[in-house]
Amino acid sequence: MKLLTCPVNGTRPLSEFVFGGECRVPPAADCSDKVWADYVHNRHGAPGIKQEWWYHAPSGTWFIAERNTLTDQVIRTFLKGQEGKQ
């Protein structure tokens, strides 16, 4: 099983995590219906490096993983808002 590193709890097998989807910023609420529908339903589904939500279930920790969806390599993980911190 693949390993993932929770920024708080360390490296664990994937079975301890729940995938929370890509981190996406919604458009402003006054956007057009079309723009909102695009946000809700569509994805940029091509492979690449994406920021994703992951949840470490035993500790209840949400964090963000930067992952290459083509190779399934995780580049780094960090808590939201602490992207720049080590």
Partner: peptide
């Protein structure tokens, strides 16, 4: 509960969530 924790991460409100 999981979703609440996630939104709290985004909203950063002055709350504590306890399951």
């Amino acid at each position: 509960y999981r979703e609440m924790q996630r939104w709290q991460q985004i909203w950063q409100l002055d709350i504590g969530l306890v399951n």
